[in-house]
Write a protein that binds this DNA or RNA. Structure first.
Lengths: 209, 209
DNA sequence: ACGAGACGGAACGCTTGCGTCTCGACTAGG
DNA sequence: CCTAGTCGAGACGCAAGCGTTCCGTCTCGT
């Protein structure tokens, strides 16, 4: 089977639909333990070296419990990663462009300062350069969703008159996400406490240039 | 042996020091073939999955030829990657800040538009998040060198009066590299022909904000 | 002409992970 | 109470890659 994960257990599960705070929808405690172990192993080993044996062992589960839910490492990764990424992408609307930009940067920084996402995200992105199936799934589920969200953020600023209608959306989106990702996930250098504030000022200047 | 690669062959090699156009210093044709195969395998498999058997096979060499030169995959990667990265990092000095910025962006774009570096660079960066030894070696050999180069570029602009002396160097460096890397290596979206020009304009505005 | 040493290639024993399969234990619905 | 289904655990055969060791060949410098 290559479709909906966990469909085999969903009929008979003791806690039919439990929701972790901030986490994806998980069907039961076994699925939850497997997902947690999966992300921990993914962070420490990377996708390429990820061993489902290690995931099972860390989750205190049997390998069969994994294969009962997902048919392969790829399908498992797409399902779990898309779930948390979509779940974590909340709409931002503070009423001002500066507020929106700062909130966006704060969100990103909050995620990338944690060791799990800061290891997992670059790893999956590198894997996407090599694995078209993973790339297609993650790009449509995560990248395109987030980019559409951020575009709406810019459109609202245009409507409010904070940005000229002819503002270069593409360039603005790259400016919005690039420097912070570069700082935290690429060169991995800590930031001063007012870094996001100063970055926000520069970005606003660049947008209207 | 954990030091200088190829030291065992350098005494007796038929072509004592041959230099590829744009490539690192390679001691002889076997080392050269191994290095080429190494980067091709690295691009298609990633560091974690890289198999020295596959490198040897692709190079038309025996595994012993590899182990005679480097003691491990890690040492081999550090040596070869540092060599090309340092080799490719040329000083930029066009005389104007705008010229320097555009030249820098053009360099980066030129590299990241090729399939080998655009797959290898994100992969090694992701691996650095997981492998302290690799991170230490690559960060000091590549990241710090390049960042120092770019800092000098900013200082020259300050001396020319193109930037105020109190310009935020750290932030400027992140703005310089982040958006383009994001665009080409993270979200992997093609750019319009005048993208670098427009990006340069925005960056100059942000620097002096 | 000779010996030293690197060469490509193949096999070695060993480890890891794959995906499947079989256990006995536990639990829930009928 | 019974039975169907999941549970953890782990053995299975298979494949790949590790690092090493040998082989016979080739090309040097002496």
């Amino acid at each position: 089977m290559t479709t909906s994960p966990s469909s085999r257990t969903s009929a008979r599960t003791p806690t039919p639909e439990r929701r972790l705070p901030g986490g994806p929808v998980l069907q039961d405690s076994v699925t939850e333990a497997i997902a947690t172990a999966f992300f921990e192993e993914l962070a420490s080993s990377g996708y390429a070296r990820l061993s489902l044996e290690a995931v099972a062992k860390r989750a205190g589960a049997g390998k069969a419990a994994i294969y009962r839910r997902w048919s392969s490492k790829l399908e498992m990764t797409v399902a779990l990663a898309s779930a948390v990424a979509v779940d974590a992408a909340g709409e931002i609307d503070t009423g001002t462009l500066r507020g929106d930009v700062l909130a966006f940067l704060t969100d990103v920084a909050g995620a990338l300062r944690h060791s799990l996402p800061s290891r997992i995200v670059p790893d999956l992105l590198a894997e996407c350069a090599r694995n078209p199936e993973l790339a297609q799934a993650l790009f449509t589920a995560v990248r395109d969703t987030r980019r559409a969200n951020a575009t709406r953020m810019l459109e609202r600023a245009v409507e409010r008159g904070e940005l000229p209608p002819e503002v270069d959306r593409e360039l603005a989106l790259d400016l919005l996400a690039g420097p912070l990702y570069w700082r935290l996930a690429v060169i991995r250098t800590p930031t001063a406490p007012d870094y996001l504030d100063r970055l926000t000022d520069k970005l606003l200047a660049a947008f209207t240039a």
